[in-house]
C-alpha cells in the first residue's frame, strides 16, 4: 500500500444549519483500496460523502484529495480531478434516455471517441443498460437505475469513486450483482472506492478496510476482516 492517501479527511465538522451531523471525522483512503464506512441511520454517512464533494460545506477541518485541500473547490470541478460520487437514492436523470445519462457523466470530457468507447464499455459491463439504452432513465427498475448511476459515474473516469448506499431498496440477488461489479471495477480498473453502507456485512466483505461512524464521529477503524469478526460490530450492526 502506498504511503500517501489519495483522499483524506482531517477533523471535519459539517452539518445542516444548527444541526451538526459530523463532529470531527478523520479518515484516510489509500489508492487502490475499497474502504467502507458503516453506521446506522443518521450517523452522518451520507453527510460525509456530500461534504467531500462540497455539496455541503465543511465548517471546520480539511478535506484533502491527492494531497491538495479541496474544501473550497466547487462540486462541479471534482469530476475533472477524478473524484465522483454515486449519490444516495441513485438520482439518475429520469426523463433523459439511458444513453444521455451516460453522456452527461462524461460532461467534462471532450474526447468524443473516448466517450463512445466508454459507453460501449459500460454496455459490456452492464448488458441490461445496452438493451435499454433508448429508454428513459425513470422507466428502469431500481437495480437497473443503480447500475445506470454507477455507470454514469464511471463515465467521468474517476480515480476515486464514492458510493452512497448502493444496496438501498434492492433485492438481495441484485445487491450481490452490484457488489460483484464494484469489486470488479476496483480490481480491473484500479479505481479507489469509498463505500457507505448500512448493510455492514456486505460492505465489509467487499472492502479492504472499514470505518464505523456513530453520530458524527468515527468510533472504530480496522481491517475489514477484523471488523467483520469484531464481536461488538457483530452485535451492533450484524444483528447477532
Amino acid at each position: 500500500m502506498s504511503a500517501e492517501p489519495i483522499l483524506e479527511l482531517r477533523n471535519v465538522h459539517s452539518g445542516y444549519g444548527t444541526i451538526k451531523a459530523l463532529k470531527g471525522v478523520s479518515l484516510k483512503v489509500y489508492p487502490g483500496e475499497v474502504v467502507a464506512i458503516i453506521g446506522a441511520n443518521g450517523a452522518g454517512k451520507s453527510t460525509t460523502l456530500m461534504t467531500i464533494c462540497g455539496i455541503i460545506a465543511a465548517e471546520k477541518g480539511e478535506v484533502l484529495y491527492d494531497g491538495k485541500k479541496i474544501n473550497k473547490v466547487s462540486p462541479e470541478k471534482l469530476p475533472i480531478k477524478g473524484l465522483c460520487q454515486v449519490p444516495e437514492g441513485r438520482r439518475i436523470f429520469p426523463r433523459l434516455s439511458v444513453e444521455e445519462n451516460l453522456i452527461l457523466g462524461a460532461f467534462h470530457r471532450k474526447d468524443q471517441e473516448g466517450i463512445n468507447k466508454d459507453i460501449e464499455y459500460m454496455y459490456s459491463l452492464f448488458p441490461i443498460l445496452g438493451e435499454r439504452c433508448k429508454q428513459h432513465g425513470g422507466t428502469l427498475s431500481g437495480g437497473e437505475q443503480q447500475m445506470l448511476a454507477i455507470a454514469r459515474a464511471l463515465m467521468t473516469q474517476p480515480k476515486v469513486l464514492l458510493l452512497d448506499e448502493p444496496s438501498l431498496g434492492l433485492a438481495p440477488i441484485i445487491i450481490q450483482q452490484i457488489f460483484d461489479i464494484i469489486k470488479d471495477i476496483n480490481e480491473k480498473n484500479g479505481t479507489t472506492i469509498l463505500l457507505v453502507e448500512q448493510n455492514a456485512n456486505l460492505a465489509l466483505q467487499a472492502a479492504t478496510r472499514g470505518y464505523v461512524l456513530e453520530t458524527g464521529e468515527i468510533t472504530l477503524e480496522d481491517k475489514a476482516d477484523a471488523l467483520l469478526h469484531n464481536p461488538e460490530i457483530r452485535k451492533a450492526y450484524l444483528g447477532e
Binding site: 455539496i55 462541479e76 471534482l78 469530476p79 475533472i80 460520487q85 438520482r91 452527461l104 460532461f107 459515474a153
Partner: peptide, 8 residues
C-alpha cells in the same frame, strides 16, 4: 444535485 456531481 446530480448534475452538479456529474460536473455540470
Amino acid at each position: 444535485t446530480a448534475a452538479e456531481l456529474m460536473g455540470v
